[in-house]
């Protein structure tokens, strides 16, 4: 497969993936056969059996660190999304103006 600037061979990628998956599976199956594998255990925190983890962390918390770091940016963005349609159109025109300026003066 070839693009303007790069390329990759899908057939070779898939061949390599299958071979390497098999090799990795072989590596995983190495080891002492006497030991059991796949024992199912509960989760303990400091000796106490843990409840369902979703009680603590939901999918909306996955980006917590990122959002917390950029809190000032997000609060600014929230302020700008005030629901007033005329202000949205104003920002739309400003954006179009910037793009047209770049195109007209051949900056890009």
């Amino acid at each position: 497969m070839e693009t303007y600037a790069g390329f990759w061979h899908v057939e070779w990628f898939l061949t390599a993936f299958i071979i390497l998956f098999f090799i990795t599976w072989l590596i995983k199956s190495l080891g002492d056969k006497k030991y059991k594998s796949g024992i199912q255990e509960d989760i303990f925190l400091s000796g106490h059996q843990e409840k369902e983890y979703s009680d603590y962390i939901g999918s909306e918390n996955l980006y917590w660190g990122f959002k917390e770091s950029l809190r000032r940016y997000y609060s600014l963005m929230k302020k700008m999304h005030n629901g007033i349609i005329s202000e949205y159109i104003f920002w739309f025109y400003i954006s179009i103006l910037i793009v047209l300026t770049f195109i007209t003066f051949g900056v890009i």
Binding site: A16, F21, T24, D32, Y35, Q40, E41, D42, I43, Y53
Partner: peptide, 27 residues
Amino acid sequence: IKDTVIPKKSTWIFDFMPLLSVVSLFI
């Protein structure tokens, strides 16, 4: 050579991801 313990609440993804991690790096 150690036991491989899998949490009761985990899914098949838990067991599959180490494999995928190594394969992708091999590639």
